[in-house]
Simulated assay, not measured.
Amino acid sequence: MCLCHESRHPDHDLVPSRYATRIGEIDVLVISDGALPIPADILGTNVDSAVRDAALRERFLPDVIDWGLNVVVVHSGGRTILIDAGVGLEMPDATRAGRLALRLKGAGIDPASVTDVVATHIHMDHIGGLLDQRLRSQMRPDLRVHVSHTDIEFFKSPDFSHNTFGGIQDIIRSSARKFLDAYKAELRPFDKQHEVAPGVVVTLTGGHTPGHSVVRVSSGGERLTFAGDAVVPVGVDCPEWQNAFDHEPEEATRVRMRLLREAASTGELFLASHLSFPSLGRVAAAGKAFRYVPANWAY
C-alpha cells in the first residue's frame, strides 16, 4: 500500500502555522510543517476492520486523513531547541508538507539561532527538514543533534518485519542513512534521558521505534509533554489501537497507555507530532480509555 498522492493547492501558507504558549518561564512555539495524506486503514490494524471503520465514521474522519506534522521550538537557558524537523523534501509527492524553513522564517526564528535539535526518532517526517538545503544551509556549524543511541544503532540497518509502513520502507531507510551520514559530527547520542537545557528533558520510551523518545518541558510547577509518535490520530480515545507505522506495536501500546495515564493524572499540557495543529490539549480519563480536551486558543 502506498501513501496517497496530493493535488497541488495554491496559497498553502494562508493558514495558521504557529502557536505560542509558555510553560512557567519557558517559551514554547508549536509550528506546523504541513500535513501528509495518510490512508485511514493504517490505524487499528489489530481490530476488526468493520469496528475500525465505524469508529472513524463516528469521528467524521475520511478514508484519507490529514496527518499533521507538528514541530516545537523551545527557548530555555539561553538555548533555542528545535524538537523534530518535519519531512523536508523526503516525500516530494506530499505537496502540503515540508514547509519548515518557510514557517520558521514566518515565526521570526533564524535557523542560525537554533543551538540544539532533538529528534524524537529517525523517521523521514521527523528528520527530513535537516536534510533540506533550504534549512540545513542556514544552520550553525556547532549545532548539537540529540537522538537516542538506540535509534541510531537501529536505523543503521532497520528491521521492518513487524509492520507494513504503507509501502514507504525504502524512503525510511534512505532518509535515515542520509541523516546519519550528514550529521555524524553533530550527533549527541543519549542512553535513557538527557537534559538538553534547563527544564527541557528528552526521555527514551521505545515502542514506535526502538529508540523513540518524548520531550518534557517543566518550569514553575507547569509541564508540557511532546509525545512524538507515541500518540497518533484516534490514539487518545482508542489507545489500544495499533498502527502500521509502529516498529514494536505491542510495546508502542504500553508506552501510549503509560503516557496517557500520566498526562491524565497530572493535567499537564500534552501534544504529539501528528494530531491536528496546534495539537495542544489535556488528557482526561474516560473509563478504560481517554479523551482529549483541546486547550483554549489564546488569541
Rank of each mutant, 00 (worst) to 15 (best):
A35I: 11
S76C: 01
D53L: 14
V47I: 11
G77N: 01
L69G: 06
N46L: 09
W67T: 12
I38H: 04
I42G: 08
L56T: 02
I65W: 15
D48T: 04
V73G: 00
P37E: 14
L43D: 05
D41E: 13
V64N: 11
V73D: 01
D53C: 09
L61C: 08
V74F: 02
N70Q: 13
V72C: 02
V73P: 00
P37V: 14
G77Y: 03
V47D: 02
V71F: 06
R79T: 00
L36K: 10
A50E: 02
L61A: 13
I65G: 04
D63Y: 07
I38Y: 05
P39G: 05
I81R: 02
V71A: 03
V51A: 05
R57I: 11
I81G: 00
I42Q: 06
R52F: 10
P39A: 06
H75W: 03
L69T: 09
L69P: 07
D66V: 14
V51P: 01
G34A: 10
I65H: 10
G68Q: 15
A54F: 04
I42W: 09
V72K: 00
T45N: 08
D48I: 07
G44I: 11
F60C: 11
V47C: 00
I65A: 06
L36G: 06
T80P: 00
D66I: 12
G44R: 05
A50Q: 07
R52W: 07
R59S: 11
R52E: 02
G77M: 04
G78H: 01
A35G: 10
P39I: 10
S76L: 04
D63W: 09
G78T: 03
D41K: 09
V47E: 04
L69I: 15
P39R: 05
V71R: 00
L43M: 14
T80E: 03
V72I: 14
R59Q: 12
I81S: 02
L56C: 07
E58Q: 11
R57K: 13
V74C: 04
E58A: 14
V64I: 15
G44D: 04
L61M: 11
D63P: 02
L69H: 05
I42R: 07
W67F: 15
L36W: 09
A40R: 06
A50S: 06
P39W: 12
H75E: 04
T45H: 08
L43W: 07
S76E: 01
P62H: 15
S49W: 03
G68V: 03
A35V: 14
D41Y: 11
R79E: 12
V64Y: 13
A54D: 05
R52V: 08
V72T: 09
V64C: 12
V71M: 10
D53H: 05
L69N: 07
S49I: 15
V71Y: 00
N70D: 09
V74T: 03
L69R: 08
G44N: 02
A50K: 03
A55Y: 00
H75Y: 00
A35Y: 13
F60H: 13
A40F: 04
I38S: 06
R79V: 02
